[in-house]
Design a binder for these strands. Sequence first.
DNA 1: CGGTAATTCGTTTTT
DNA 2: CGAATTACCG
Length: 730
Amino acid sequence: MLSSSLLEGLNPEQRQACEITEGPLLVLAGAGSGKTRVLVHRIAYLIGACGIPPESVLAVTFTNKAAGEMRERVEKILGPEAGGVFVSTFHSACVRILRREAGHLGLARGFAIYDEADSLAGVKEALRRLGLDPKLHEPRRLRWRIDQWKNAGVLPAAAAAAAGDLDARRSAEVYAAYQRVLAEQNALDFGDLILQTTELFARFPEVLAWYRRRWQYVLVDEYQDTNRVQYRLVQQLSAGHRNLCVVGDPNQSIYGWRGADVRNILEFSRDHPDARVVALERNYRSTKPILGAASAVVANNRGPQARLWTEREDGDLVEVYEAVDDRDEAQFVIRQILVAAREDGRAFGEFAIFYRTNAQSRPFEEALLEHDVPYTVVGGVRFYERAEVKDALAYLRVLVNPADGMGLRRILNSPPRGIGKATLERAEALAAERGTTLLAALREIAAGAGGARSVTKLREFLTLLDELCDEVRSLSPADALSRLLDRTGYLAHLARQATPEAEARVENLRELLTGAEDFAAANAGVGDDERSVIELFLDQVALVSDLDAWTDRSDRVSLMTAHTAKGLEFPVVFLVGLEEGLLPHAASARDAVGVEEERRLCYVGMTRAMERLTLTFASERRRYGSRTFAAPSRFLSEIPDALVRSGSVSAPAPRRSARDPGRSLDYSLGHDSADEAGSIRVGLRVRHPIFGEGSVLAVRGTGQACKLDVRFDRVGVKTVLLRFANLEPV
DNA sequence: CGGTAATTCGTTTTT
DNA sequence: CGAATTACCG
């Protein structure tokens, strides 16, 4: 294939980022500058033009969605030849490596991957063993601390060595005990996936050498979000050949709280003195006002700023809406959506609502439901974290890895089968005493004499487990799940309840089965002889996020946090809740570093917008039951006035109707008093002499041209000219 | 032991 | 305010 055709359509900088194939390369890719495009074309160029075998290329991303997209787009250019490229997330890549090399680390191949809940339970178990009171030593805090250590690449011994005060020493002890718990249960938590891989490479150079030889070209996406262990991993893999290309944008570093270290990207050139640097500064996504507003906000952070430019001259000003409260905020946004859908013929899929915290989605969901607008919430309570889904998967987990204590705990008595707390505690004590797994302890109790009810029940459970193990092993994930839900009586138990909640759970399990079927279909033949399809399925569910399942749907409004929105784009964006304490969030706004990250988050949210950006804030908000009041976010005042239109807050007073001044609308209704004659708020109830009563959906234009969209109770939505309509307030 | 009632609890963002 | 743990009774 001709190299020129592979790089066709790229601008000079993008092209450069593809053509510098050898040695370290830093690509500073501003928002909307075609970063993915560069990564895709670079891979295609390496293979198609330079003759690099696809198997020699490793591309690492943070989300499965990004990995999938990249793989797909490379294949589109190169065809099936591209199949050999290894495109993966950090976590999936490490799982692949660890499964293969498990023996080196003393792990069994079927090790479990513990999620946050399992990990928290592990911390509690560690506390129990150390005789520490969980009331005094908050498990959540400790878990977080351990996670930070792992993100920083610190093992228990190092944590203990560096511990200054008593609290740190104790935390390090818990860390060590927690690691022992994981080891006994043949499990790794999320942080371990990366950390243990770097340990593997550090301790077994010959293993590292193999991977280095295999991956001669390494690409890393979203490099500004890498933490120290990920940095170390990337260094290990690329240290030999040094063909390392990292792509990122310091302005979009928003995961510092999770251990990401923006220095990784800022100091790339220091780490690699011979590194080449390419800056992509042309934005292809947003109009000038949007890009200008976003850039102005982020310019308040210290440090040098990349300057982005766009040729999209035209475009609406950024709109700012002051809502009375969170309900009003939601109503405003939904009405704006309805108007734009109708007036501009936009599909619902063109709209996105971004917020700081997941809890903010509720009023929007209510308003969307009220107006029959289809929507999807991305994130929040994740599907695979629902109790019933976790239960079902826990059965599979235990069948695959009998040492999985957390999984076993989950299923031991769900559905309820007469094995309660007492039996569990007895088994746990026995397991600790003998140094065996929980399952082995349970077996020992069951083998013992005595016909106590609980022991009989336990025997029944263990028999069931053994039978299931035989029956299910060779089945597909979906068949296996279906069989065990039936055989364990799990479904029957739910059906017996006959409540709406139970019904919803059954529905979720059905969805899980569908997901399992899809997985098997998509991975037909992939199940190698080493690992069953069930095991591969379990890996996948442990590593997918909600975003990965989100597909571009043209018919639904998308709701998500600004964090989740990174990497996406929408024609019309609403960034809501721009209040002090929320964005910037109070928990992050203590120090300058925290505020700067919040500011970048705001920047990320704003730069997702292609054509229209609306920012909203509410002066009053219901939060955990009670009212809270907040000032507008400082970020709002950082946007130049010239780029803002706040017209939707209030409509400037039109001429009073000379004919009937008294009966026409009193413009002082509404909440603001400072400017002009007052306002007509969206949501206001009005009466029209002919159409009757209705509520204002939207206010467009000003002065003589001010038009209202009103949904009349009797005749539906009409657009009226305020000047002529003779509206009365109701 | 199981289920329900009462109370406590915390509330940022998540691969 | 809602989830999630705990208390208590059948």
